[in-house]
Design a protein around this nucleic acid. Structure first.
Length: 1008
RNA sequence: GCGGGGAUGGCAGAGCGGUCAAAUGCGGCAGGCUUAGGACCUGUUCCCUUAGUGGGUACGUGGGUUCAAAUCCUACUCCCCGCACCA
């Protein structure tokens, strides 16, 4: 079996016959799409092989199931990697890219995927990117493309914009200069206009929940209130989700990147502020941002709190985002952790306005005066102290104490002493774990997150905490929630919380205090009430905020689609005629090659014909990938991006396949783009991808395969030795395709051996007739394969196929139908081998175009399979007995069927063996799965009785009648196997069974 | 910190209330075939005991629900993957 020769043979046969070319037709379409790759010039590794195979299996299966399948491939060929690689190797990006595409096509063809190569596209091709420009202008005309200032990475030394990759660590990749953020005019798409629809329409699509959640978080809808604060006689809006804390505002913070920051900065603070802003402008690495300390400078201005007229200082801070909300926040240090940290650092007052309370007891005035609780919060231990009037301080412990008794004990004591309370340590309670409790009373609370124990100590002896013991000591077990309710209701306790430690903010809900007329309101209610109050005074309103930002499309790079705009002094920004071709003869060493290219830049204004300049920014690559799936539908169209009719036929993509790393960027942009085109009436659907599948990554030595790490296994490493079909089959059989897998060389051999066994089957004699058993197994396999392919559970598919092959292997002669069915089922996985054997079996057509076999549930004959299984087991057992009895050729065979406990069966057997060495047969009837389901109810009824006797479950449940019938068939076969006479006798109930009274129902049926 | 997904035999990976000492593959062991090795075939592979029945311990840890739990609930621990100073 030369799998490489076979692969070559069929790959050229397919290509010659052009069988994977899809044309629009009447058949039901199915669009399978893999995310188009960046054309790298290096070999494909096993990760690529896996990704592409996942799609190909699906596409092939759908094609065989009678769909008109569109399965194209193309290349995301614009972008920084080509530019960098080209610079490194001194070749032009165009030449580099085209060479790379040629290479990758060759590698991909060697995979044997059923791509329609005629629909290939590459985004750097003017035939493609001119339509980017077309759409750009469309979006511009719709007001969805606009220009505004935005920060870019800027190297002051090179005077050049840097890509994020070039500014890693905040240093320029060329000169190591510190990179700064600089505001430049940039192009944006107004994706924010679509935020709500992008969120709502997630309901419409079948995507992994994980991706949907990521998109939801990315869009980040939040309901809140916009509140106007007066600063220097001017109203400044801020956004908050916690208007209930407005009385606790002790300062304001404006973002260091806020465009109007300087307006608020008074002369005396100007110098400090400028230094601060400069400091904030430095590009930070991710780690730096994470560990960044709150930092700020006072502006010198004051804001007036609209609800109480309080004057609070306005600070500039590094932790406030300029482009979320209004770039300024009201700071409530008592109830927001960030504000808290800032306030601590700059010694700004902290004013508490939310009081944590539990239950409703706080509404009772009397308890307010007499009962209080203290929460002491430290970084890791939280203690709740409750004082109630009859008992004094009680210290329940919430969490933490088991891990570090000493720390817990010390901290707790500290709290108690701080409150002026004399503590008494009650020694450990409980069994193995040391647990500490404090109390001076006859009641002790112990609390751990979800449970609380109230111990009523009748004397000073420690009590254990297990339930039985607890009962004796009147210990009450309850959930924390219940316990708190009990405190507030039954014991009339009430928590007035203060933060003794002042180490962190209280961000939970509670009741308002120090909040004027809103005192006593629940904080959750206060959100609405205060918003309403502000709205009435025209000082605030309810608003919805999204985290999603407009899509920055501009790149200050050469290798991308030129933005088709012209800047004219007179007419402003004017769309250019298209296509605007990317000039090839540029100085690639220049800081910005397009800007230096005079003929490109200097043009006449399309409106006034006066001198004007072309936009030199290019579009980011996500523009290309936002509509390439539409272009596949009509990739040769020279007049328009696509014909509406063709797109209408093929779109939306039925099954999209790609990595989860695109969860937010590409997958949101494409959805936005399609919605925008839909609104322009260019297409009639508004979601591009009906179903999405995320494949898992292939790891090796604990890391993702990558050239730089040197842990790459290339396509050819495996295919040279074992053939590409082996690689495909192996990769699909290791795990479900969405799982991360670790590459291991040894498994491949197993797959190769398996394919060899499939190949060996083709040497068996094919017969026309098919027996019921084979037929049953066949239909079972078809069913399993069909269902598991559909849900991408390919590893189960391969198992179903393997089991079928194992069975077929046992047959002397192969029913042709079974064999061809096997080939059809395996064809999506190992298409070349399948074609070869298909041909060998005398078929004239391509298996790739053959019809998928259908299954008939009725043909799955559980009984036949049951009998077969019985015989197999029986034969094995018999052989063992024969060996044991040292008898070669038995004269008679006595069959004993146990329909009952193994115990009884083997007693009988033993007896038989002792009685006569002529006994030649053991039969152990094995209960099939179906039978169990069928008789499950009866078993359930019997169970309590059986269990009373401590007896094992019956191993066989069969009706007597059915059993006898099956037995006849079994005996025939056994007779053949052992070439002996067979006698079947009714068996008597074993004496042992009787003696043990193993079961009240018929325990054993012995037929001899 | 927030959100999502996990933890199963030497390894990978199914199972998701009774047929479970747990599919399948890899690896290990023994036997057959071979001059030998490889390939292939057969058996075996948690522990104790057996010719066979039998018993014990097991699906991250602790509790719970159930006649019955790898499977359901609950808490904890650890791992992975996203997002992250979003007010």
């Amino acid at each position: 079996m030369d799998l490489n020769a076979i692969a070559k043979k069929w790959q050229s046969a397919w290509e010659e016959a052009g069988i994977f070319h899809a044309t629009e037709g009447k058949k039901k379409k199915y669009y399978v799409l893999e995310m188009y790759p960046y054309p790298s010039a290096s070999f494909l590794h096993m990760g690529h092989v896996r990704n592409y195979t996942i799609g190909d299996v699906y596409a092939r299966c759908k094609r065989m199931q009678g769909h008109n399948v569109l399965y194209p491939m193309g290349y995301d060929s614009f972008g920084l990697p080509a530019e960098t690689a080209a610079k490194k190797e001194g070749i032009h990006p165009l030449d580099y890219t085209e060479k790379a595409i040629k290479k990758i096509i060759a590698y991909q063809k060697a995979l044997g995927n059923s791509y329609d190569w005629e629909r290939m596209l590459a985004s750097h091709d003017p035939e493609y990117y001119q339509w980017n420009q077309y759409f750009f202008i469309k979006l511009f005309e719709k007001g969805l493309a606009y220009r505004k200032k935005a920060p870019v990475n800027w190297c002051p030394n090179c005077e050049s914009v840097l890509a994020n990759e070039e500014a890693e660590g905040g240093k320029c990749w060329r000169c190591e200069t510190d990179v700064v953020k600089k505001d430049l005019e940039q192009w944006f798409f107004k994706i924010t206009d679509y935020a709500e629809r992008l969120l709502a329409d997630l309901e419409k699509i079948e995507w992994p929940e994980k991706i949907k959640t990521m998109q939801k978080n990315w869009i980040g809808k939040s309901h809140g209130t916009e509140i106007l604060f007066e600063i220097n006689k001017e109203q400044w809006p801020i956004f908050t989700t916690r208007p209930d804390t407005i009385y606790g505002v002790t300062f304001m913070v404006i973002s260091a990147h806020h465009p109007r920051l300087m307006e608020l900065t008074t002369a005396e603070h100007k110098k400090d502020m400028e230094a601060f802003v400069k400091k904030c402008q430095k590009v930070k690495t991710q780690e730096e941002i994470e560990s960044l300390d709150k930092d700020g400078v006072f502006t010198g201005s004051y804001a007036i709190n609209p609800v109480n007229g309080e004057k609070v200082p306005v600070w500039a801070g590094n932790f406030v985002l300029a482009d979320y909300g209004s770039g300024m926040v009201m700071a409530v240090p008592a109830h927001d952790q960030r504000d808290f940290e800032f306030a601590k650092k700059y010694k700004i007052p902290i004013k508490e306005v939310i009081m944590p309370v539990f239950g409703e007891a706080h509404k009772n005035e009397e308890f307010r005066k007499t009962i209080s609780a203290v929460v002491h919060r430290k970084k890791d231990n939280t203690f709740l102290m409750i004082q109630w009037k009859e008992f004094g301080w009680i210290s329940p412990v919430i969490g933490g104490i088991d891990q570090g008794e000493d720390a817990g004990k010390a901290a707790e004591r500290e709290v108690l002493e701080e409150t002026g309370y004399k503590t008494q340590f009650i020694k450990k309670l409980g069994g193995e774990t040391e647990q500490h409790f404090f109390a001076d009373n006859k009641k002790v609370w112990r609390m751990r997150l979800d449970q609380a124990v109230l111990l009523e100590l009748t004397d000073d002896k420690p009590v254990t905490l297990d339930k039985e013991e607890a009962k004796k000591h009147e210990v009450i077990w309850m959930s924390a929630e219940e316990a708190l309710k009990k405190i507030t209701h039954e014991y009339n306790a009430f928590g007035l919380l203060q933060y003794l430690g002042k180490e962190r903010a209280y961000t939970e809900e509670g009741t308002l205090i120090n909040s004027g007329e809103f005192n006593g309101t629940k904080s959750t209610d206060a959100i609405a009430e205060i918003t309403k109050y502000l709205a009435q005074k025209k000082l605030g309103k309810k608003v919805i905020q999204y985290k999603i930002k407009d899509w920055l499309i501009s790149r200050q790079r050469y290798w991308g689609t030129p933005i088709p705009m012209i800047h004219c002094q007179k007419c402003g920004v004017v769309p250019s005629a298209i296509p605007v071709l990317l000039p090839k003869n540029v100085d690639l060493k220049a800081k910005n090659p397009l800007k230096e290219h005079k003929e490109f830049v200097n043009v006449a204004c399309p409106k006034c014909k006066g001198p004007a300049q072309r936009e030199t920014d290019t579009m980011g690559g996500f523009m290309d990938s936002s509509w390439y799936f539409l272009r596949y539908c009509d990739n040769k169209n020279k007049k328009e991006p696509f014909s509406k009719a063709k797109v209408k036929y093929w779109m939306p993509v039925d099954q999209y396949i790609g990595g989860a790393e695109h969860a937010v960027m590409h997958l949101i942009y494409a959805r936005f783009f399609v919605k925008a085109l839909h609104d322009m009436k260019l297409i009639d659907f508004d979601e591009p991808f009906a179903k999405l599948f995320n494949q898992g990554i292939v790891y090796k030595d604990g890391a993702k395969m990558s050239k730089s790490k040197g842990n790459v296994v290339y396509q050819t490493d495996i295919s040279d030795t074992y053939g590409i079909d082996t690689a495909r089959f192996f990769l699909m059989s290791v795990a479900t395709p969405d799982k991360v897998i670790e590459w291991r060389d040894d498994g491949v051999e197993g797959s190769y051996r398996f394919l060899s066994r499939v190949y060996a089957l083709s040497d068996k004699k094919l017969i026309a007739k098919i027996d019921t058993l084979t037929q049953s197994k066949m239909h079972r396999t078809i069913k399993g394969v069909t269902e598991t392919i559909d849900t991408f559970e390919y590893n189960k598919t391969t198992i179903a196929i393997t089991e079928f092959v194992n069975y077929l292997q046992t047959l002397e002669e192969l029913p042709k139908e079974a064999f061809t069915t096997l080939l059809l089922l395996i064809a999506p996985f190992t298409p070349h081998l399948a074609e070869e054997l298909w041909e060998k079996a005398g078929q004239k057509t391509f298996i790739s175009l053959a019809s998928w076999p259908s299954f008939d549930e009725k043909k799955i004959d559980a009984k036949a399979e049951f009998i077969e299984e019985t015989i197999t087991n029986l034969t094995l057992d018999m052989r063992k007995v024969l060996e044991f009895a040292k008898i070669e050729q038995p004269k008679t065979i006595k069959i004993i069927i146990s329909a009952s406990w193994k115990y009884d069966f083997y007693r009988l057997l033993k007896k038989e063996i002792e009685k006569t060495r002529d006994m030649k047969l053991i039969l152990q009837a094995v209960m099939a799965k179906q039978e169990f389901k069928q008789y499950g109810e009866d078993i359930a009824k019997l169970l309590p009785l059986i269990l009373k006797d401590n007896t094992k479950l019956p191993s066989v449940i069969l009706s007597q009648k059915e059993e006898l019938q099956n037995l006849q068939k079994v005996s025939e076969r056994i007779k053949g196997i052992f070439k002996a006479d067979i006698r079947i006798e009714a068996a008597e109930k074993s004496t042992e069974a009787k003696a043990k009274n193993a079961s009240p129902s018929k325990p054993a049926i012995v037929v001899t």
